[in-house]
Amino acid sequence: MTHHDKRFVQRDRDWHPPAYAPGYKTTVARSPNQALVSLMKPSASELTGPDFRTLRMGPHDNDLLLNFREGKGQDGLPIGERIIMFGRVIDQFGKPVPHTLVEMWQANAGGRYRHKKDAYLAPLDPNFGGVGRTLTDEQGWYRFRTIKPGPYPWPNDVNSWRPAHIHVSVMGPAISTRLITQMYFEGDPLIPICPIVNTLKDRDAVETMIGRLDIARSNSMDCLAYRFDLVVRGELQTYFENQ
């Protein structure tokens, strides 16, 4: 019988950071010792995933300049460099991934997260929450408006600092394509000395996480634009007889 055989390009685990990367100290006790068990013939459990087109979003869910003040009677704007963060979600074959959920979260301009466990001395911004979500359009494009987050210190080495970054979560078409990453900002001198960035062995892999200044798409007298494309695993279909 002709068999609809869908699969995804194998994830290259030498490209991604390894589970155990002692320069990032928290990985030491949180990395499995045993080998992953490979499923050579993935099933619907791995090859399908949620479709969020019917999730009802708020009008400013992708606009972090406005979405924290909503419903609070506030009219202030967050402090910081106003930026547009935008890009495309495509797969490894360059095919756009439409209608997929892209979520992001970040610190404020001072490097402080609005999170009950963040006690960094930089102040909270009363006009900034730091969370956004959107769906890609038909061509895979997404867009957020926000402020550029600040770098911040964290307990790893005696004096470790995170480069400015925005956490980005993308669903893609299936559980197999799920990915969480971080966008860094082109030219940030903290990138090459960050223990989390340096969990990656391959410098080319680091390049996939750099948001690039796009002056052409910046808005005059308003905000700079940073482009950040996301590549998720490529989907393959074969229609040969399976014997």
């Binding site: 991604h16 990032y24 999170h115 956490h167 990915l179 969480i180 990453t181 996939t208 996480m209 490529g234």
Partner: peptide, 25 residues
């Protein structure tokens, strides 16, 4: 074939983005 965007940890503050109530937000 393009390379997948590299993964990074979701970090300690994942809740503010994906589990808002757990962040106290």
């Amino acid at each position: 074939v393009l390379r997948e965007t590299a993964s990074q940890t979701a970090g300690p503050y994942v809740h503010i983005g994906l589990a808002l109530a757990a962040a106290g937000n």
